[in-house]
């Protein structure tokens, strides 16, 4: 290890600042009152606004969404703005951003073929938005900076009702002190079911849009299919065999119709696993970080921060890839049509 840097005044002062900060953190950890596991809320909390009667209900996942939006606009807008304004050779920053975009496009061309450019804007935005959102969620301050508010949701009301059942004494014993709950200002946007549900609905709706755009009206035959793929029975056929072949054709049409209806149900239900997968992964990661940093305050949670970085990237890739695969399935012709 090169210790020469410590002999310069700048290196020395940096070292002193780091040591003082570490000692300060340890002191805070030792001196503060007994740690309490924060209340984990499955739903996103509302940011408490300084009005007596809140007019706006802002969930605490909104700042993270805005932050990610600004990061994406910065990443994409700055190179564009600089090139349009200045002209000339592209800057290194622009080259880096373009390298990422071209990498994604190359990856998508393996899956979607010639339609990759059509799908690229939406799928790349999904990937960037989800991944950056997941990474924002492990920034310091997320889930830990907030205000303490008196908890007066159904939980406490239920607890009070519960308390009444076994006497007034226990009620005062249990709920004598004020029940305070930390409402954080920031929360990873994908740990809010509404965000992931919105993303999933956009993805499924865009699947239908691209299917219609590329295949045209024949795309709807996937859902409203009242044709038999077998050849029409010979009308000259008489007797029992003719009846059987007509009956078989009727059954085939009926089954195709039912399959089309099932496709509609399946397509609609795709929203659920889509949104729950992302929500579950990110929310579980947040709970994991909560619990781990409650058990071991220092050093050990760093491993899990690294794990969360990895999980965030993988979930972004999974969401974008699944969307892409659904798009390319929707835009390839139904094999019933190819057999003609």
């Amino acid at each position: 290890m090169n210790l020469a840097v410590l002999k310069t005044p700048r290196g020395c002062s940096t070292l002193i600042v780091i040591v003082v900060a570490l000692v300060g953190l340890f002191a805070v950890g030792v001196l503060r009152k007994e740690a309490e596991l924060p209340v984990i809320s499955l739903a996103a909390e509302e940011i408490p606004l300084p009005f007596s009667e809140p007019v706006l209900h802002i969930p605490n996942t909104l700042p993270a969404t805005w932050l990610t939006m600004f990061i994406i606009i910065f990443l994409v807008g700055v190179p564009y703005w600089v090139t349009v304004r200045k002209g000339g050779p592209p800057s290194r920053f622009q080259v880096a951003v373009e390298a990422v975009a071209e990498g994604m496009l190359g990856f998508m061309k393996n899956v979607a073929g010639e339609n990759a450019r059509l799908f690229f804007p939406l799928v790349a935005t999904f990937f960037l938005f989800i991944t950056l959102n997941n990474w924002c969620g492990i920034l310091p301050g997320f889930g830990s900076v907030g205000v303490w508010v008196a908890h007066h949701s159904e939980e406490v009301l239920a607890a009070e009702e519960h308390g009444e059942e076994h006497g007034e004494e226990e009620l005062t014993a249990e709920h004598g002190e004020e029940h305070l709950v930390l409402v954080p200002f920031f929360r990873s946007a994908n740990a809010h079911l509404s965000t992931t549900l919105a993303l999933a609905i956009v993805s499924v709706a865009a699947t239908q849009y691209f299917g219609l755009k590329v295949l045209g009206i024949p795309y709807l035959r996937k859902y409203l299919n009242f044709r038999a793929s077998s050849p029409k029975p010979d009308p000259a056929q008489k007797g029992l065999q003719g009846i059987i072949s007509k009956f078989a054709r009727g059954v085939e049409i009926l089954v195709n119709g039912i399959v089309g209806l099932l496709e509609i149900v399946l397509e609609t239900l795709k929203v659920l696993p889509f949104s729950f997968r992302l929500f579950g992964n990110i929310f579980a990661g947040e709970v994991l970080l909560f619990v781990v940093s409650y058990l071991f305050a220092f050093v050990f949670p760093v491993i899990f921060l690294g794990l969360e970085l990895f999980v965030g990237l993988i979930q972004g890739i999974v969401f974008a890839m699944l969307t892409l695969v659904f798009f390319s399935i929707a835009t390839t012709a139904h094999h019933g049509e190819e057999s003609h």
């Binding site: 696993p273 729950f276 997968r277 929500f279 579950g280 992964n281 929310f283 579980a284 993988i314 979930q315 890739i317 999974v318």
Partner: peptide, 12 residues
Amino acid sequence: ALAEAIAIYALV
């Protein structure tokens, strides 16, 4: 990751 998501459903 897709298989893991099933475990995540149980976790949720």
